[in-house]
Amino acid sequence: MKWTSALAIYFLLWIFSAFFVLPFHGRRADDDAVPLVRGQEPGAPAHFRPLRVLAQMTMLSAAIFLAFYIAYKQGWVDPDVIAGRA
């Protein structure tokens, strides 16, 4: 696997990990005693911590990529079978 392919796969996993990480963050604003600002969505998080979200996305995508890379090196993921050539 070329390093550019590995980087592209990792980047895609990093982006997709946002869909797994974001739903678990923050209590809703109407759950807290935080007063709502005019125009604020009541279901929006009261306190959003983007650095924490980015760190969790990075850890999750690194773990998934490591599992994929090990499977690729062990031969469990065959590029010919995935491409339909075998």
Rank of each mutant, 00 (worst) to 15 (best):
Q40H: 00
A62M: 02
L36D: 07
R49T: 05
D80S: 10
A62Y: 01
R49Q: 14
S17M: 06
D31M: 04
I82H: 04
L22W: 06
D32T: 14
L60P: 02
H25C: 10
A62C: 01
V53R: 01
E41V: 11
I9S: 06
G75N: 12
A33H: 10
S61Q: 02
I9Y: 12
I82T: 07
A46L: 06
A33L: 03
S61K: 05
L13F: 14
Q74T: 10
A86L: 14
H47G: 09
D30H: 12
R28Y: 12
D78Q: 12
M57N: 05
L36R: 12
A6W: 12
V53L: 06
G39L: 02
P50H: 07
I64L: 08
Q74Y: 09
R38E: 14
D78N: 13
A6G: 12
A46Q: 07
D30I: 10
L13W: 08
A6I: 13
D32Y: 08
L51A: 15
P23Q: 07
F48A: 08
A8Q: 12
G84S: 03
V34I: 08
A29W: 05
I9M: 15
W14D: 05
V21R: 03
G43C: 10
F65Q: 01
L7M: 11
I70D: 01
R27Y: 09
M59T: 08
R85H: 09
K2G: 13
V53F: 00
F16L: 15
I15S: 06
L13Q: 11
P23L: 02
L54D: 04
A33M: 08
Y69I: 03
G39I: 05
Y10L: 15
G43W: 09
A67D: 02
L66N: 04
F16E: 15
F65H: 01
D78R: 08
I82D: 05
F11G: 13
Q40W: 01
Q56S: 00
I9F: 07
P79L: 02
A29M: 05
R28L: 01
A6F: 04
L7Q: 07
Y10G: 10
F48P: 09
A83Q: 13
M57L: 09
L66K: 02
G84R: 01
G26L: 09
H47S: 12
A83G: 08
H47N: 11
R49E: 14
E41I: 12
R27A: 11
T4L: 14
A6S: 10
L60H: 05
G75Y: 02
F68K: 01
E41P: 06
P42T: 04
I82V: 15
M57E: 07
L22Y: 15
L36F: 09
A6H: 04
F11N: 02
F20Y: 01
P45A: 00
A71R: 02
A62W: 00
F16P: 14
P45S: 02
R85S: 13
A71N: 04
A63L: 11
H25R: 14
G26N: 08
